[in-house]
Amino acid sequence: MQYQLIQTQNQLNEFVEQIRNKPILAIDTEFMRRRTLHPEVALIQVYDGEHLALIDPLAELSLFDFWEILRDPTVLKVLHSPSEDIEVFQKYAGFVPMPLFDTQFALQLLGSGNCMGFAHMVKNLLDIEIDKSESRTNWLQRPLTIKQLDYAAADVFHLLPCFDLIIKQINEAEFFDIVINESELVAQKRAYQTPDELLYQDIKNSWQLKPADLAVLRELAAWRRNKAIRKNLALNFVLKEHNLVEIAKRKPSSLNALRSIPEVENIEVNRSGVEILKCIEKAKVVPVSDFPEPLKRLIDFPAYKKVAKDIKQKITKAAKEQGIPEDVLASKKQINQLISWNWKLTPEQRANSPKPDLLNSWRYEYVKDALQEWDV
């Protein structure tokens, strides 16, 4: 396996010319996610079947021409389980390479099981054991070791022959467009940002709170994310999620009272205590008429179990008719997403929220007749 590490502009320019007219590129990224909100990109691997390069984004490089190739809609970009890679590109490049072929999802679509890891795929399809000992390595260190570079190069070197085997079965089943559309859906969902005023609804155990408590939680959840974005800190390094609910319940009015809440750490109070107290005071003057409504779980709706079972039966029937694995057509989470969207949101909220996966993606074409009553 031959590859080059690209750390100069001349090396990158030469590589771009080598891959410029290639119809298929295998791509991977290495990144670190330590205390930051966004992944820190450390390496971009690219293989066209002939030229394999490891591009060092920490070097002083202009990637404009390389990005243009990844933007080219005539070039198929092949990745394995690219959800986090999509986030890397959204943040670092400002776009997501499309069309994008996810080999992990393609295998799932072909009935090979859920979330097959890269090493498992390579063993299954190529009968090659690959070394995964560097998966937890520090990719931001420089210089990178030969072992790190070999590991990174192997990810795309083996990805392309796996793709060659998978694409034959995908084309025979006429599933190519589904694979491409699924990656587009993942990118859409990664790019969507819940409005500040609705963030509190996604906080674990928020359903336990009363309306006055929810008004505090609403302020805290929005403040936490905005600070995380401003400081590029992971959310839980600003304030742990379970502490949000406890603070909203207790509504401390002083730093000492805040410190007395179990599990709230001194470092959280020292860094953000004053801001937290301001959120509480802001929520306290909110009129009762503007309090959030109590949150309901799906299991709190008497008809939930019967309705979920009915939808699942319809999905099962549609999946069998189309030859698509049932769990690919609709997971339990996606069924719950559909029910929640209909039952929990007002018409105005639905108009301003992303549609559920079952009503927005390739899935809709397969289930629209069976789920007609849910497409409101």
Rank of each mutant, 00 (worst) to 15 (best):
E50V: 14
K309L: 06
K77Q: 11
L235P: 02
V367W: 01
I247C: 06
R142C: 13
D65F: 04
Q18G: 07
E30P: 09
I261E: 05
L220G: 02
T194F: 01
E30A: 10
Q7D: 14
I24H: 12
S361H: 06
D127K: 10
A228H: 09
T8A: 06
V88S: 08
E14M: 11
M32H: 05
M116L: 15
K249Y: 12
L329W: 04
M1P: 02
S361V: 02
V245Y: 03
F176Q: 11
K305A: 14
A370R: 13
E365I: 04
K132D: 01
Q4M: 12
L235Y: 07
K332N: 12
A319I: 12
P23H: 14
N114Q: 15
Q90A: 07
R230M: 09
L58D: 10
N236I: 02
V78T: 01
N21F: 14
M98R: 10
L76D: 03
Q90I: 13
P57M: 08
D28S: 00
V46R: 00
A106S: 13
A26G: 08
Q313W: 10
P347T: 05
K91L: 10
N232C: 00
S272P: 00
V122R: 01
L258A: 01
A215D: 05
V16A: 04
K368C: 09
L52E: 08
M121F: 07
V96Y: 01
A330C: 02
I324W: 02
I86Y: 04
R142F: 13
M98P: 03
Q313L: 14
D369G: 15
K22L: 12
P347N: 07
F163Y: 15
F176V: 07
A59M: 05
R271Q: 11
V367D: 04
A154K: 12
L209D: 01
I27L: 15
Y192S: 11
F237V: 07
D85Q: 05
R363Y: 02
P211I: 11
K22G: 10
V122M: 06
A152E: 00
P57D: 12
L160P: 03
D127T: 04
Q337L: 07
I267H: 13
V285N: 08
G113S: 10
E293L: 11
F237R: 07
E129F: 08
E174M: 11
C279L: 06
L70H: 09
V46D: 00
E263D: 14
W374I: 04
I24S: 03
E197C: 03
I261K: 02
A308Q: 14
Q2D: 15
A257F: 05
L233F: 08
L209K: 12
V245P: 00
P161N: 11
M121R: 06
K231I: 05
L61A: 08
N360S: 10
C162N: 00
Y192F: 15
V16Q: 04
A53M: 12
D202M: 09
A59N: 08
L149H: 03
I170Y: 01
I44A: 02
H38C: 03
V286P: 03
A93F: 00
Y47T: 04
